Amino acid sequence: MPVFWTQVLDFAQTTTHRVGDRLLDDFGQAQAQEKADGSLVTQSDQWADEELRNAIAQTFPDHGVVSEETEHIFPGTDWCWIVDPLDGTTNFARGLPLWGISLGLLYQGTPVFGYVHFPPLRQSFHGYWRGDSGLEMPTGAFMNDRPIHTSPDDLSPNHFFNLCARSTAILQNPVPCKIRMLGVSTYNFLTVAAGWTLAGVEATPKIWDIAAVWAIAQAAGAIWTPLESNPIFPLQPGDNYSQRAYPTLVVSRVDLIEMFLPLTASIGVKRYGMG
């Protein structure tokens, strides 16, 4: 593995685990406040955001940073980290042990590496996605350093389809498998990457919800299907990503798109104020 990628992986692992250990002390005890978009934030989110941004600045001083809590304008640097300091804040604040820390590394506006750590579960996912970058880099997706891949299974009533809270209108239609709602965008899609579920949908994820898992899921063989016509990546320097949402369907096999995509017709861009 090239030295740069060894440094990237070591940094992501060490930093998210250090921050995660500290967040465990506040788990289930933090007081949450409502942000303008209706989502929750705690002092733990803000502390973790600052810790992660400072760590990136010290280790990769030439890299830019976009984060959920503070930095929303995409910089003009070749390399940029996208930070979600605490994905699943509602779970975290209410004492449900499903929340994580997400770091995505973008090259020229497109994710090429992702690392997501879930402290209560002791699960860490990472992956490399070369795409069209031309970079010399590793390949593959991993959970706790073991390779993962999407499920080859056929659709059945005993497989899972993950929804988010804003996609429940899907349930007006017959759904061909069991439903799960996890409350964490990253984990929703990572369960597809790991082969545990066949598909997942998110109606209003922001860029920090998807940057890391975009690389991991595709490296694991998942099919990423945006639910709007405009491409997500590359991100554009100078653009503000604080209010943009990216409705997305992720499936384990390309032939499942035709099974799940019709169900998502109820997820409208205008309905959620995304256009």
Rank of each mutant, 00 (worst) to 15 (best):
G127D: 03
T14Y: 13
A265D: 12
A194T: 04
S133M: 05
A12K: 04
A215G: 04
H63A: 14
P176H: 11
F74K: 07
S266N: 10
T186D: 12
A93R: 00
R53K: 13
G134H: 05
L256G: 00
F4T: 00
C177G: 04
Y241P: 00
A211S: 12
I267F: 14
F4I: 03
A222D: 05
D153I: 09
A141L: 00
N173F: 11
E68V: 03
M274Y: 01
D26G: 03
V66F: 05
A36P: 07
F260K: 06
D78P: 08
R18A: 14
S266C: 14
A211N: 02
F4Y: 13
N230A: 15
S266K: 12
T191Q: 13
G95M: 02
N173S: 14
G238P: 05
G221I: 10
H72D: 07
G28P: 05
L163Q: 10
W47Y: 12
L121D: 06
I232Q: 15
T197V: 09
L190T: 01
R18Q: 13
I207T: 07
D21K: 13
F4A: 01
D153S: 13
I179N: 06
R271H: 14
S167K: 11
V251F: 03
T225D: 09
S156Q: 08
Q31F: 00
L249P: 00
Q123V: 15
R122N: 12
